[in-house]
Design a binder for these strands. Sequence first.
DNA 1: CTGAAAGCGCTTACAG
DNA 2: CTGAAAGCGCTTACAG
Lengths: 347, 347
Amino acid sequence: MKLTSLKDIAEKANVDISTVSRALANSPVVKEETKQRIFAMAKELGYYPHASARALASRRSHTVGLILPDMKALQGPFYIEVLRGIEQKTNESDYSLLLTTMANKDKESIYLSLINGRRMDGVLLISENITIEELPFLVKENINFVVVNRFFKGPHINCVASDNIQGAKLATAHLISLGHKRIGFVTGQKSFSASCERIEGYKQALGERNLPFDESLLVEGSFQNGISSGYKCTLELLLNRSPRPTAIFAANDEIAVGVFQALRDKNIKIPQEMAVVGFDDAQFAAYLTPPLTTIKQYSYEIGFGACEMLIKLLNKEPVGTHKIKIPTKLVIRDSCGSKLKNPHSSK
Amino acid sequence: MKLTSLKDIAEKANVDISTVSRALANSPVVKEETKQRIFAMAKELGYYPHASARALASRRSHTVGLILPDMKALQGPFYIEVLRGIEQKTNESDYSLLLTTMANKDKESIYLSLINGRRMDGVLLISENITIEELPFLVKENINFVVVNRFFKGPHINCVASDNIQGAKLATAHLISLGHKRIGFVTGQKSFSASCERIEGYKQALGERNLPFDESLLVEGSFQNGISSGYKCTLELLLNRSPRPTAIFAANDEIAVGVFQALRDKNIKIPQEMAVVGFDDAQFAAYLTPPLTTIKQYSYEIGFGACEMLIKLLNKEPVGTHKIKIPTKLVIRDSCGSKLKNPHSSK
DNA sequence: CTGAAAGCGCTTACAG
DNA sequence: CTGAAAGCGCTTACAG
């Protein structure tokens, strides 16, 4: 079954294929009338440009690569939304999206085979476990890339991520405004930049209200094992902290679920005896008992923005800044209650 | 920056590029010694074949398309695992994976642009909302495809999915073996084949034990709005059913969460007063209170199997059957308790 | 076993 | 504004 090619259109329209090519690319150089005639024929013949031929000739695959540590990274609503944003942008710009995982491959060979094999024009790096070490390699190899949801310093390293500092500040300030002074914080792994930034935001909020920072109120949990680590860390926060915190900031919503469970097991009422804030605004956050107050991340915008930046790079268009921070938003539900009556009553 | 091509290798090895091409393709026709020499040079020069050039010449893109209704379809652990399976197989077979969504595009144009644009050799259809109508189009256009996680009849329609009938039978039989005779069933949308199959399995299990099938024990929920529909449907099952069911089968684990919530609100103890079984074995299933007994689907195997079948089709290798059913497994935890003491005591 | 040649379906200077 | 030609980097009959 032969598909229609430029040649078919050219013959039918009685022009050279180069003219057809230009017309379909909407080149300003070809006469409007000719263009219209060619458009019509192309449509009539059901023409679809052959992506590989085009890529070979133009030296652009019009494909963006998405590199994940492994598929499990997609778990949770956060990355799904990131993907939605990416897909929307690739669609609008007529790019294809190639999906790859670093699972059991070595990183350099991925980059090399994908970029040198010319399957993609640039890559989006979605990865909690990208290390700063591999980035210079990408820069050296002249690979267009943007890192999604992490920040790295360096002028050639393009990043788009949530403003974690601002988000954590928002959460902490909210608790403070409700009268809390001792705020426990179940963080994510400290090896993740997002964790450090959120801790930074927490400290800043405290500092701005002249509240002391107490190291013992920080317990390191895990983003991935949110529920179980949230549970364990809460138990720890309930022990030997004097006075006991009156509020807990969970570094993500899964962790908050664990916090909820521990609190329920200990018969500590939310929000009356302990306020809880999460981070992410996961879909289930509104369904918890009580509904979780949390920090919403604009993950769709992160994906879209990252892809937009990459495509601009590919088109050699000027990108403004190479580091984009997407602000977050406080979503108030019931897990923090309203003003605290007597924040220090419980010990 | 010029990348190394066949020509570079050919010059260096003092052979024609066609020989290099054959050697790298490991053609049996070229002399072993020549091959080795060429392999070495290729490696030394860091050669990566240009995917587009190869695709253009060989008329195979070596790319498999993954078509989703929208990114949200990936939500939940089920499809993540399916993806893992697919990725594993594409890796092994050296295929690339192109990701597309049907969100705001019309389906035929997707198929046409992707297949006729020759971006992919075949497609994997992951979609709850694929309709039987569009399949003949695919067949007519000679597109290689396999439907993941749904069954359609027809000799040219390749499907790989869980054995839903067997799974639902497993769940129901388990409840029956524990003494339950009145088993409520919060189904998925009846428009989904998975729902019908699970209902069928439920009926079969009942029939095999000579238990009557009571239509009023079936309430239609929703896979997507699992929690809220599970909640509502449970309330309904608790009303006017006489005698009241002593067990509830939830068509997926999210629905089971809703069932749990409703039961808790009504002060009905799980499993003492009501046994609950789910379906999927979602990650959170083990963390519910009580841990959920459920039916595990081998989603990784579904993805792997589907991709394997597709690649066989592309290679014109014989595929055995065109419909593969992957069996499910009962995972017993605490939500069904053990033997019922007095199954009819509660009314 | 290897080489020379044609061709895959486009794009893009170069002329005119 | 359009055409003729070269070229993108491979594969694959066809000869020898």
